[in-house]
């Protein structure tokens, strides 16, 4: 029983981030533009970006600074987990349309941060 509890605790540690409440932020991709294009999130916390692609073509979310890369299929939504991050600005682009599909995640050090501009 004791061993089982230890394994359970280990699994809990490994997968704990999914069990904790993660703040969600919604973005829309339309006409190869992200709305909003600037998102403010709190430092030191994991958040979930939910991106709705309303275009008829797929897009690939890409950010070297966020270390994230994911395809968003046409007329579908996807989610991307980011953080915990240090304060600063983290740019992202849509790789298929890098000149228009651009945005920034602004990470601020404040209690209860998380405004979406």
């Amino acid at each position: 029983m004791f061993k089982l509890s230890r394994y359970f605790l280990l699994l809990l540690m490994v997968f704990s981030s999914s069990l904790l409440a993660v703040t969600e932020y919604e973005l829309v991709l339309k006409d190869h533009l992200f709305f909003p294009s600037r998102i403010t999130i709190p430092a030191g916390k994991k958040v979930k970006l939910i991106i709705h692609n309303q275009d008829d073509t797929p897009e690939e979310f890409d950010s070297f600074s966020l270390n994230r890369q994911k395809v968003i299929f046409a007329k579908r939504k996807t989610y991307i987990f980011i953080g915990p991050l240090q304060p600063g600005e983290y740019d992202f682009v849509g790789e298929y349309n890098p000149n228009s599909a651009r945005g920034t995640v602004v990470v601020v050090k404040e209690a209860g941060g998380g405004d979406v501009n």
Binding site: V14, F15, S16, S17, S18, K46, Q69, F81
Partner: peptide, 8 residues
């Protein structure tokens, strides 16, 4: 697992 979804 998706990037960043879990601890690793």
């Amino acid at each position: 697992t998706d990037q960043g979804q879990y601890w690793a």
